[in-house]
Amino acid sequence: MERSVRSLSLPMSRKIAADLCAGDEILLSGTMLVGRDQVHEQFHKIIKAGKVLPVPLEGETIFYMGPAPAPEGAVIGSCGPTTSSRMDPFTPELLDAGLVGMIGKGPRSSAVQEAVIRNGAVYFYAFGGCGALYAQKVTSIVCLAFQEFGPEALYRITIKDFPVIAAMDSRGVSIL
């Protein structure tokens, strides 16, 4: 069977996210946020306190990842996805706040799926354990907040031809 792989630019509009279909193989290029457990807990506290997040989430995609240190001369170290389900309790409120895409590995809760449908968002599967492969797809990285958490800080990265598979779409279809 011939596989078609399409390209997609980040950040993306809600309309583009909502049109993606679970099972689509996609190469992402552009910029996205990076954050995992600590970023999610901090975001939750900020939203709960009615304060302003360090970065507006509208149109953003977040990659659940904590990088290994960059070797000399490299942009980033090994940087594959972490298990998404740990972010589940915090995810619906981020989607409701404008986040349109998430990238990680493994299944999501039904509450996340409902929030994906409600917001016309998308969850991408990134190839688990493939940190060296993904390091080749990152062209720049900058820390946006929570530097004290080291690899668990909030980053923005620029990527080129970053391979993912749409895993949960806005129509409620999931390949997980």
């Binding site: 069977m1 596989r3 099972g23 193989e25 990842m65 904590g66 990088p67 290994a68 070797p71 490299a74 170290g77 090994s78 940087c79 594959g80 972490t82 190839f127 354990g129 493939c130 940190g131 060296a132 492969l133 390091a135 080749q136 690899p151 391979p163 598979i165 390949i175």
Partner: peptide, 28 residues
């Protein structure tokens, strides 16, 4: 097509790790 995609990416990743001398997975 998806399951072979996953394993071929894993094999590609193993080559990348050896070539760049960096960990195959960031969770060491």
């Amino acid at each position: 097509s998806r399951s072979t995609s996953v394993i071929s990416k894993i094999l590609e990743n193993l080559d990348a790790a050896e070539k760049m001398r960096i960990p195959m997975c960031q969770d060491t």
